[in-house]
Design a protein around this nucleic acid. Structure first.
Lengths: 124, 124
DNA sequence: TTCAGATATATCCATTATCGATATATTCCG
DNA sequence: CGGAATATATCGATAATGGATATATCTGAA
């Protein structure tokens, strides 16, 4: 029997995961996706089309602050080098939002579990 | 501070809840919504535009079987009375699907919880 | 008796969210 | 030398949702 696919992340869940990654320190888009990809064993892999609009929304709502970093080649000091990284830092407002998401998620799972058969100790 | 809104149900979660209601016995659309509405304290209230297409999909996939019931007025035996109810019964295939949904949901929450701060025993 | 609210099923449409593809450019490593 | 990885971002087609609309009956309170 095939592994049943996981339910898809709701927008709120996706936002919560991104914020939870940023709660451990500033990061940038690509690294955030990788963290979520690895941390979920690939189950919550986010495409760029999902990630970047989400990050833009977080910025617009003041949940994160952003700064650009010029990434220079290891073997070069060339300042005109165009490689760039956009760093995201969780704002106090973002921290509060994360806590709200976590609380909402706990209520969410509690409500759902009430519909499901109890998880019993399995006979050996 | 306002109650943070719950994450929205994914299609899989909505399907799981409907199937879990039917696992307790046959039911019909309106009663299913009421069961989910009450069982979730209104949090997962489903509009008709969500419920009926969902039920139609379950039927088409063979997860439920359906029968029509003619609902007669309490004080009448009139057979031409047009009130009707569509009953849904969980099929064996539907039972298996429900179990898959439940397993997937457990994995889903476990993966998400790994991103969140542990729920510690609170100091009194 | 009347009339609002509940019961009961179902679809339409505008909005939103998602996935896959596309675009661009650099850097790493074999 | 060249493909995979790094890095950001948008476009367009598809899918799912919420609110409204449609229809018809039944219940209970004023």
């Amino acid at each position: 029997m095939p592994e049943a696919p996981l339910p898809r992340l709701s927008p709120n869940h996706a936002e919560m995961l991104v914020l939870s990654v940023l709660a451990e320190g500033p990061s940038y888009g690509y690294a955030i996706t990788k963290a979520i990809d690895l941390g979920s064993e690939g189950s919550f892999a986010m495409g760029a089309a999902k990630l970047y609009p989400l990050l833009a929304r977080l910025d617009k709502q003041g949940l994160v602050t952003t700064t650009w970093e010029e990434v220079k080649a290891r073997d070069s000091d060339d300042e005109t080098n165009g490689r760039r990284r956009k760093w995201y830092t969780l704002s106090p407002k973002g921290e509060r939002r994360l806590e709200q998401h976590v609380q909402a998620h706990r209520r969410f799972t509690a409500l759902i579990d009430a519909f499901l058969p109890p998880l019993e100790a399995r006979p050996a």
